[in-house]
Nucleic acid binder design. Structure first.
Length: 238
DNA sequence: AACCAGGACGTGA
DNA sequence: TCACGTCATGGT
């Protein structure tokens, strides 16, 4: 099965995911499992303003190796002390009460590092003055690695940069498309070379991978119950 | 009670 | 380049 066929299969199974979730957007599908709200299936017009754009950026830092539910709590805490995620408000809180901000993000883990990462990306964002950053520029910000850079570009700036996460590697190494220790850029390249360069498809595919992985690739041994992709792959080979 | 979560960085081979 | 330790809370 080709990379693009897997996308079609996942889309047919789970339909449109509506990433990136925004905590105060009440979408048509607000009851998604384990999530407060904020998904907007088939609506690619987000982020609609600077606050939403920076919310995505904050979320991309906060969710590093952390459960999204915890990130949502942290985002709600931040919103209480820096209204609407406006960068200037967040800068003000960071300058006036560092401890308060740190407490707000404690629930998302690694809070001593993440507050510095957020401070770094905040300075970077303000200096951009509305421009779209390059991937290289983002990677230069301490706290922004490959996946976070791609998440920011794909979901905050609608750039067609494919996001590779741990789930992507887990699923596609189980299905023998890649090896477990293949580099980030190698896996990213595999997807980008086998898909149209389209940010909407990249957004959906990445979020569909997460949805699928949460169902079948969380507990070891990974993927044993994955009939959707494993059986289909076997049929195609026959 | 381990194990995992929508990773990144610093270090030493 | 890459393997490994570290960072930390919260959910299952």
């Amino acid at each position: 099965m080709k990379i693009e066929e897997i996308y079609e299969t996942l889309l047919g199974e789970y339909s449109y995911q509506g990433w990136w979730p925004l905590i105060y957007y009440k979408g048509k599908n607000p009851t998604k499992t384990g999530v407060i709200n904020g998904y907007h299936p088939k609506d690619y017009s987000f982020p609609k303003n600077e606050g939403e754009q920076f919310e995505v950026i904050l979320g991309s830092i906060l969710t590093q190796n952390t459960n999204w539910k915890s990130v949502e709590k942290a985002l709600i805490n931040i919103d209480k002390i820096a209204i609407d995620f406006k960068p200037e408000n967040i800068l003000k809180v960071l300058n006036e009460d560092f401890i308060l901000f740190k407490e707000a993000i404690r629930c998302a883990g690694y809070y001593n590092q993440k507050i510095n990462y957020i401070s770094n990306i905040l300075d970077f964002y303000i200096n951009l003055d509305g421009d779209t950053p390059t991937r290289k520029e983002l990677l230069n910000v301490k706290g922004v690695g490959n996946e976070t850079a791609d998440s920011i570009l794909l979901y905050a700036y609608r750039q067609s940069e494919f996001v590779v996460d741990a789930y992507t590697k887990r699923i596609f190494s189980c299905l023998n498309y890649i090896k477990e220790k293949d580099s980030y850029l190698k896996v990213k390249k595999l997807f980008e070379e086998n898909l149209p360069s389209n940010y909407e498809i990249y957004q959906e595919y990445h979020s569909l991978i997460v949805e699928h992985a949460k169902r079948y690739y969380v507990k070891k041994p990974y993927g044993v119950e994955d009939n959707l992709l494993k059986d289909f792959k076997i049929k195609i080979r026959l």
